[in-house]
Amino acid sequence: MLSIQNLKAEIEGKEILKGINLEVKPGEVHAIMGPNGSGKSTLASVLAGRDIFKVTGGKVIFKGKNLLELSPEERSREGIFLAFQYPVEIPGVSITNFMRAALDQHRIHRGLEPMNASEFLRYMKEKKALVELDAKLEGRSVNVGFSGGEKKKNEVFQMAMLEPDLAILDETDSGLDIDALKVVANGVNKLKTKDNATIVITHYQRLLDYIVPDIIHVLYNGRIVKTGGKELALELEKHGYDEIKKQADKMF
């Protein structure tokens, strides 16, 4: 589904990603772990199409298409979803209008008619229940006045609405208490099918107790320096990143 080959990216002349290689197949859950500043969030942003990062080398193929040639909106319609670490507040734009505009575009892209108002509201209600988002959304502006937990739940709700092929969860666990974390993880798990894939980006092992990955990668200093099964998370939990950092520093 996703093939990243030797991806390099920089911001303001500073190289952040120094050659990333990653293969994600349908049905898989990948976790990308790593210390702060290793390039985890940059990778997520580059995949979503944030133009403040300049791609200086490598390729990203998504479902056979050259992802790097697509605009952020085209990537979304092709099936990439980024759950933001810091969901953006948009005063004056209601969640209903926001999701409606987004879903219309996705449906048009898939050759479907946009939903009418009542179909849309029913669909929204269904997805809200699925991800256990109990906050009243009608009439509220996107993320405005939301608690940290509500913002993250809202990301998962949007994911449920758009049904992406590849979801990238960027530090979705940051700032969540254990109950909110469970709800968010539960939502993600419910949305999992054998045809879609998930990349979970996290600093801590905690989230991976609830969203269990098939493969774990350790990102350090712009490179994936170690890949393993879910036992790798436990190892990191025990020993921290120091050992891996030392080994990597010797190699590069």
Partner: peptide
């Protein structure tokens, strides 16, 4: 216009 908000909306499929 807020660049962050614009990017956020685009990542949901809304044209620029």
């Amino acid at each position: 216009l807020d660049d962050e908000a614009l990017f956020y909306m685009r990542t949901r499929g809304i044209p620029e």
